[in-house]
């Protein structure tokens, strides 16, 4: 049985997931996530020793295709989907250092 998820845990995962929460949202989401995770107590109580995990329905196999040139998506069309682009590239605000 796992310990109940706390507001500190939720603050941490929200930060990892790049979501900002108001204090009210933090309380509400923490309670809801706790309820969902508590539902999983039923499977936490199972004896699963020796059971292999299943990550996907089909066995993982290498998929090869013929090495033939095709027509990729048009660069300008793809860049046109972006909020901001410049000189054939996606443009973002500064990543490193202080904001200008």
């Amino acid at each position: 049985m796992a310990e109940r998820i706390t507001t500190e845990d939720v603050t941490k995962v929200a930060n990892l997931a790049r979501l900002a929460l108001t204090p009210d949202e933090l309380e509400t989401f923490t309670g809801q996530l706790a309820e969902i995770l508590e539902h999983a107590d039923d499977i936490a109580a199972l004896d699963l020793a020796g059971v292999e995990p299943m990550a996907r329905p089909l066995p993982l196999v290498n998929v090869f295709r013929a090495d033939e040139p095709g027509t990729p998506l048009d660069r300008d069309e793809v860049l046109a989907c972006a909020p901001v682009s410049e000189d054939g590239q996606f443009r973002v605000p500064p990543v490193l250092g202080e904001a200008p």
């Binding site: 997931a17 999983a40 292999e52 995990p53 299943m54």
Partner: peptide
């Protein structure tokens, strides 16, 4: 948002085996 946070939590270090790992074994069952 709820599901993103839930997913991020169950995949995070210290909880991965207890939640995600267990759920994957239940898929086998």
């Amino acid at each position: 948002k709820r599901r993103i946070m839930l997913g991020t939590f169950v995949l995070s270090a210290g909880y991965f085996d207890a939640f995600y790992g267990t759920a994957q074994k239940v898929r086998t069952l």
